[in-house]
Every structure is written in structure tokens, then in C-alpha cells.
Nucleic acid binder design. Sequence first.
RNA 1: GGUCGCGUGGCCGAGUGGUUAGGCAGAGGUCUGCAAAACCUUGUACAGCAGUUCGAAUCUGCUCGCGACCUCCA
Length: 487
Amino acid sequence: MNKSLYITNTLSKKKELFEPLNSPFVGMYVCGPTVSGESHLGHARPYVTFDLVYRYLTHLGYKVRYVRNITDAGHFEEEGRESEDKVNIKAKLERIEPMELVQKYTNLYHDMMDLLNCERPGIEPTATGHIVEQIEMIKIIIAKGLAYEVNGSVYFDVTRYAKDNDYGKLSGRVIDDMIAGSRELDGQNEKRNAADFALWKKAPPEHIMRWPSPWGDGFPGWHIECSAMATKYLGATFDIHGGGMDLLFPHHESEIAQSKTVSGKNPVKYWMHNNMITINGRKMGKSYNNTITLREMFFGGHQLLERGYDPMVIRFFILQTHYRSTLDFSNEALQASEKGLQRLLNAFESIDKITPATESSVELEKIRTDCYKAMDDDFNSAICIANLFELARICNSAVDGTESMTKEDIDNAKEIFDTFLYQVLGIKAIKKDVSGDMESLMKIMLSIRDEAKQKRDFSTSDKIRDELQKLGIAVKDTKDGATWSKN
RNA sequence: GGUCGCGUGGCCGAGUGGUUAGGCAGAGGUCUGCAAAACCUUGUACAGCAGUUCGAAUCUGCUCGCGACCUCCA
């Protein structure tokens, strides 16, 4: 088992040696989507990031239990601007059952994740499926004196909790500052303190999604679902909790408070947070009205997109940046990633063309070691990819005959690509659907072109190539005859 | 306003005290009937100012610019 993986822990803000609580088992919880709308490019970041984490840990031999929730209860507007949740509002607009809406977007989300080649989590619990667990948890918190009921709603008493616990440690908040700096908003009056947050919210009569509870009909607060589901499936203390940096406060901070109140233990050993995707330097988010849905990303149709991009290009684009850095979106950057990825994939394909040499002029072991080193350093996929480009260069040179690779080198090169590009980074070859008819037609076209070339009738051969190019079919002449590929 | 973070060559992006990151684009070359691909060569980069140091993009301070969280958000 690898003993040199370092992970940046948001809790300590340092890179820490990864030592699972109960090796080789690893428990990982990742905050999943609220399925009240379509997934956008911003959503792709955490799921690709933690897919990378999951894949690498699995590659190292850990047995990972990967839990990623679906928030299908919707969140009410916490500070009481409106006491309706998002699912409710949307369901009314679309004149359908809330669960119908939730199902629709869950399905769509799954489709998008599949296209991005994100492994499905081992357990994907839903908030609505764990109302009982959430209510039980709230009861315990009340029993411990850290929550209070007002008019059918239950609030967590942050001030009281903070007396004996370090509320704010994860996000670097100081509770007095928070109270002093908080704004006066309607609906806050039920709370004893501005810093308190809701565990259970009373449902107004028009609210469709509602459940009976000891405090009357209502629905769970924003943070309790993650505490309840993580505890249920991973225990009171588990290894890794992941999510976007924007969830640090108040979501994850509150999650710690809830879980710790119930179990008496810190719930998570390593907190991991991915950074945001920006567009024109600004975070991509609903409130900025600058989101590009994944569907638009893949198939085109958004005004900021020149065209659609293959899901693998999006995945590669995300992985070319370290997960803790912001990633700036642009067509230019995306096209650079597209070409780069194609270069890697082509290099891998061309390995078979290498003639094995008796003596080697290349050093592949260093590349393998450097790939591991990069991944061990807080999952630095950007550096891992840089090493793969070096490997691509070596393979291409071997095809050209300027480097020599032995049979063993060739096997190693394939193995390194397979391990890192395909297994760990989760890239899969971009396959264009090409029918058998098309194969046959192209065979005919190329043989006609070849005949023209034999007769040095280049105007005909070039015409064939140019016309095919217009259809998105690239013809390339090589030593061994012409090849073609579809864009 | 409070807390935190960022500013790297045309673009995207690693790096963190001395040695080439990498990709894309651009320029020149090799190969080719031509192209494409591939290979080789090529870039006064580290917001500004001051300081620490033999040496700073990397540490410290200040200034400027940008962003995130504090309200649903990945």
C-alpha cells in the first residue's frame, strides 16, 4: 500500500500524509447536487475532482466506500426571504409533482456524469429517503440541549455549541464577528441568535414537500441531510469529505457541529475542497446568471460557446488544472485542451507502429515515478498530464525512428498510459460512431485517390481530400498509405 | 464592512529560495508532390515598489488590481 500520498486538509490548511482510519478501507463522502435544475459546467468540477480521488485511491489498492448524496428535498431560503424551497417553486412552474421534477433532473445528472466518465458512487442516498434519520438526529441534538424549537421549527444553538467547541475552525470564522456582521432579515426573529441555523423548518400550508415530525409538518434544514447520511453509511468518523469551496461555510461548518453534537467526535479526518470554475474571471453560478449547462457544453447551443465539446475534452480541461486552483473557462482554453488531449490519444494509438529495437534510448521509469509523485502530491493531475506529454513525445519519436524502444519499453509505455491516462485520470478514447457502410465507402474513396496519386493526378487527389475535409473527415498520408479520421 | 485567497510569457496553466514545467497559438526547420500529423529549434514570464539573502517568480512589508465566502449555489 502506498504510504506517501499527501492531501491538503482544509481543516489544517496543510498537506497531510494520508493515513486511513481503518486501512485498507476508506470512507469518502462527497456533497452531491441539488436536483432542482440542470447540471452546469461548475458542477462538473467537484464530481470530476472526486472521481479522480476515488480512482487514484482505488488504484493504490484502497477499498473505498464512496457516498455521494442527491439533494432532492430542495432547500428553503435559509434566512427567510421566502420560506419555499426550490423544488417546490420549480414544480409549480412546470405543473408537475415535485418528485417528478427531481427524478427528471436526477436522470439528466446521471447521464451527464456517465458522459464525463465519472464512476458512480457505491451509495447515492437521497435526502427524501432519509427523513427518519434526520429527525432522529435532530431529536438527539435537542436532547443534548443544543437545539431549540420555535413555532414548529427547530434551530441549532450555535452560540451554545461554540462554548465548548471550535465552531468556525474549518472556515476560519469568528463567531462574534459573524453575529456582529450579520444582516437583519425577515424571518430571523425566531432564532435566538443570528448565527443559529435551521435543523427543521415548519412547512407553510402551500408547501407541497412536507413530512410529519415531532414538531409538526415540515421539512429538514439544509445541513442535516449530509450529517445524517454520512453517519449512517460511513459511521461517526470517516476519512474524506469532499465538496466545493463554496460549501465550506456555512454548510460544512454546520455539518461538523451537528455530527459532533450527536457523536461527540469530529466526523471527518480529511476535508477536501475543490475550487470554482470561472467565466470571465467570475464564478460560474446560478446567482450570476452565467451558467453553461453540461448539455450545452457537450452539444453546443450556448451563446458563449463556439460549438460543443466532447465530454472527454471537458474532463481533460478540468484535470489540466490542480483542483484547488480556479479554472478559467474560454473557447480558446477549451480548444487548447482538445488538441492536447488528441495529441495524447494519438500518441497512444501510434505505439503499435513502433518497431521494437534491441537497445533502448529512453528512460520510461522516471516518467512512471514522476506520475506517481505528482498524484501523491495532493492529486496533482496537471503535473501528471505534463509527464504524459513527455511520454507522448518519446513514443512519437520512436515511431519516427529518432528514439529506440525495446519490446519492454513499448509494453511499459502502454502500461503507463493505461494506468494514468485511462484508469487514474479516467479519460477514454474519443470514439466517433462510424458505421460499417462508412468504412467501406472510405475504403473506396481512398483507393480512388490513391490511383490518382499514382498517376500524379494531384488535382483529383487533393480535391477528394479537400471535399472530405469539408465533411469533417481528415485524410492523412503516411508511409503506409492514407489514413482517415472523423472529427 | 469582516474572513480568506489570487495576480506567471498571446491564451490556459504547474511550480515555491539557485537548475527547461506542460499544453495551445506564433516563428523557423526536417519530412512530404502538396497538405496534415510527427520530430527539431525558437519566447527579455512571474502586478508594482521596498526589504531579507551570496541569490527571490518563490520569504517579509506596503501599494494597486481581481475574486470567493459571510444569502441558494460545485
